[in-house]
Design a protein around this nucleic acid. Structure first.
Lengths: 338, 338
DNA sequence: CTGAAAGCGCTTACAG
DNA sequence: CTGAAAGCGCTTACAG
């Protein structure tokens, strides 16, 4: 059996409460006593039992991370968000319970009503996300990564996809492009309520109009060969387009291969702007200028808010929806035209 | 505050112990009492407090999943193992604490000595894995995914990479190939002790010799452009090779683009055999025949063993190293030659 | 078939 | 500066 606080107390010749206070620093302990306790802890290799602590403190120092791997989604994209969440949590002294249970309702009540977690991060939130309703019943604070219609009562953070689209379009307009193709996320993302899909497209359309550019919006796909055919068909249909904006993870990952297939050289034949994070770009060796989706900032913000609320459940500011400014990384895949 | 077992007992007009037994089914309860308790539970929306349960039972129903995202690794490959582990754990009634802390020693003692988890799954285990030593001190059972020099005392599971190599070579030999290039994992994987790297290469070399084939073993890379240059250089150097075996995640993901660059058509100009899972193949739309790495079997096996040991710490069989038979999926990227 | 009590291993008001 | 005791919310031997 592992050593308990009583064992430490006995070896150090004090009471358990003194050991506890020495550990927490919540009251003054004489130097000499502190040292005896330290020695006893080291000797017995004592670590406080997490369950007992949680029970006494009503706090587990564990955050729940809820995510789903959708069959038709590009799984690697999800990963970019997981690591920043994990790292930020750890920096604040929290561990992460990763919940992928398809039965989300059951998972929510299992982990929150039982007080396994002190807070919840919800990944890949959709506009009509059905997980929000069950989460309203929980006493733990919740932070959403993604944009929902009814996020009332929750902190939420997402990239400013409108601004992202404007960045992409402005960049191409500034280089003189007059006709541009936009590849969107696949249809099922729109259908499922992935608001980033239409927020980007709508803003792109509006911005193109303002610049007097022609913008051809085509639906992308999530898998080969459909994904390649969608791009190919678009390029065939709009042969005079000089710019390509890709807002689709699977498509951008496959784009180098696709463009080579067609003998299209970037940026000489076509200027390309993607939507992806630095990490994603590195993993897939993407040579494209991109609007950076900054997953690390989203993850950090969500966890930080959660931690503030856990520390001070009442004192915290009202829940807030935060839009993160996208980045822009020029990798030389666009050129001036006209 | 959440309802406690005392609240339920009061509403149902019984004692907490009766509620507990009704919940666990560990002793007979009259039908009528059971119903009153059920009603009270529903009315109060009661879920047992996990910390209190853990304290009383010395079991948390949480498994620790330890993984590291190496800077120079192809992160998406890790993901294939995470989901099966998570799913299998859930099917056995366990949740997953995902630990990515770079300070592995601290993370191990924090989660195991404190009894946060009932068992540990270690991902991406290396031959000299430094995490094994601290894990020997824990009282929780441990399951390794990967192959280590000194796995004594641990259950361990890995793909039979030797058999995988033989499958690939036999397949090409059967089609009449006499000269084949093998692209290995990057050098740092060998250096870090990723035994799958040399177990595959060594077995491939041996098997090629037995078939009287020429096998050119070249070191792959993990990032563009180095990754492409490595393949290109190899193909330039061995122009008469008719087969290519790729045991390198980043390289196989980029291969479609690479081969198109060179105008190489598969399988007409070159027969290609990869090493990747069905899921990986789908995510990256890989059109190559592959030896299947079966991450779902590895994850399942590791978790199942762990769960058995947790259920019966003494009764279980001695720890075991299990090699999983690779699969083979013909996607038509090889052809007969000669 | 059910109850009253002790215990799991902590924390923290209450005393001195 | 330190101790003795109660309590967090469960489970389970002990009794009847």
């Amino acid at each position: 059996m592992a050593a308990t606080i009583r064992d430490v107390a006995r070896v150090a010749g004090v009471t358990p409460s003194t050991v506890s206070y020495a550990l927490s620093g919540k009251r003054a302990i004489s130097e000499e006593t502190r040292e005896r306790i330290q020695r006893a802890i080291a000797e017995l290799d004592f670590t406080p039992n997490a369950g007992a602590r949680a029970l006494a403190l009503s706090q587990t120092n564990v955050l729940g991370l809820f995510l789903q791997f959708q069959e038709d989604e590009f799984a690697p994209a999800m990963l970019q968000y997981v690591l920043p969440v994990s790292t930020t949590a750890r920096n604040h002294g929290f561990d992460l319970l990763m919940v992928t249970d398809p039965d989300v309702d059951a998972a929510i009540r299992r982990t929150t009503s039982s007080a396994m977690v002190d807070g919840v991060v919800l990944l890949d939130v959709t506009y009509d996300d059905p997980r929000l309703e069950p989460l309203r019943q929980t006493r733990q604070p919740v932070a959403l990564i993604g944009y929902a219609k009814n996020a009332e009562g929750f902190d939420a953070v997402d990239l400013d996809f409108g601004e992202a689209a404007r960045n992409a379009l402005d960049h191409l307009a500034g280089l003189g492009h007059r006709e541009v193709v936009l590849v969107t996320p696949p249809r099922h993302v729109f259908e499922r309520g992935g608001s980033y899909a239409w927020r980007f497209s709508d803003a792109a359309a509006e911005r193109a109009a303002r610049h007097g550019m022609q913008l051809h919006i085509v639906e992308g796909e999530s898998r080969q060969p459909a994904l390649g055919q969608a791009v190919t068909a678009a390029l065939d249909r709009y042969p005079s387009a000089t710019g390509l904006v890709v807002h689709n993870d699977a498509t951008i990952a496959a784009l180098p291969s696709l463009l080579h297939d067609r003998g299209i050289s970037v940026p000489d034949d076509l200027s390309v702007v993607g939507m992806f994070s630095a990490e994603f770009g590195t993993a897939f060796s993407l040579p494209y200028t991109s609007v950076d989706t900054r997953p690390e900032l989203l993850g950090e913000w969500a966890v930080s808010r959660l931690v503030e609320r856990i520390a001070d459940p009442d004192g915290a500011e009202p829940p807030q929806v935060r839009l993160i400014e996208p980045g822009f990384v020029d990798r030389g895949s666009t050129r001036a035209v006209g």
